[in-house]
């Protein structure tokens, strides 16, 4: 029961903070190209790390595009027997709440996932798949925290067993180039 009380308190705090802020409707004055590291934690399984590239065009108020790559080779599989796997993702993000200091976004991800089983014994188990995920994301300045759901995940008969449905992701978007029209 204690965790539900904490949940209610959390919902209340978020609502309060939203009601105190004022949404910004201004169009981006610049197009921004950002890069940064990402840390991904699959709920119940591996850590994987990598990078993101993000582009926010100035002519679209709330849309941005990006590419992400993360791998367990830079995470759980470093000096351990965790399976080495890679995730390549293209995404489009829509900012449904946009404030001066933070933004809330919904992100659609599509990509490719590969898992290295390192032996022919496992040649009959699927080791690569297309991915499709939906993510809720909260940005504070250059910091970004997301919670996502993989629509395509393993179920024992289809898909890859180490592709789990839920994940958290922390990232940084460091602007490296700005374009003024």
């Amino acid at each position: 029961m204690k965790k539900y009380i904490i949940l209610l308190a959390f919902i209340y705090l978020i609502n309060t903070s939203i009601s105190l802020s004022e949404e910004t409707e201004s169009i981006n004055e610049k197009s921004i190209l950002s890069v940064g590291p990402i840390i991904n934690k699959s709920v119940g399984l591996y850590w994987s790390n990598g990078f993101l590239v993000n582009y926010t065009p100035n002519n679209l108020k709330r849309l941005s595009y990006g590419f992400r790559f993360h791998t367990t080779r830079l995470g759980s599989a470093i000096s351990s027997n965790a399976i080495q796997q890679e995730n390549y993702i293209l995404n489009v993000a829509y900012e449904f709440l946009k404030y001066e200091n933070y933004q809330s976004s919904v992100i659609l991800n599509a990509g490719y996932f590969y898992s290295d089983y390192e032996s022919d014994i496992f040649k009959d188990i699927p080791n690569s798949t297309m991915t499709l995920a939906l993510e809720l994301s909260q940005s504070f300045s250059i910091y970004n925290l997301s919670f996502g759901y993989n629509f395509i995940h393993g179920d024992g008969s289809n898909g890859i067993g180490t592709l789990y449905p839920f994940y958290f992701q922390f990232g940084m978007k460091i602007p490296i180039k700005e374009y003024i029209k």
Binding site: I121, G156, G161, T162
Partner: peptide, 18 residues
């Protein structure tokens, strides 16, 4: 089993490696 609705086949990979 190559298909299994309770224990994912990838379990065998983790045993083999670990």
């Amino acid at each position: 089993s190559l298909k299994d609705d309770a224990a994912d086949p990838v379990s065998a990979v983790l045993l083999y490696k670990g």
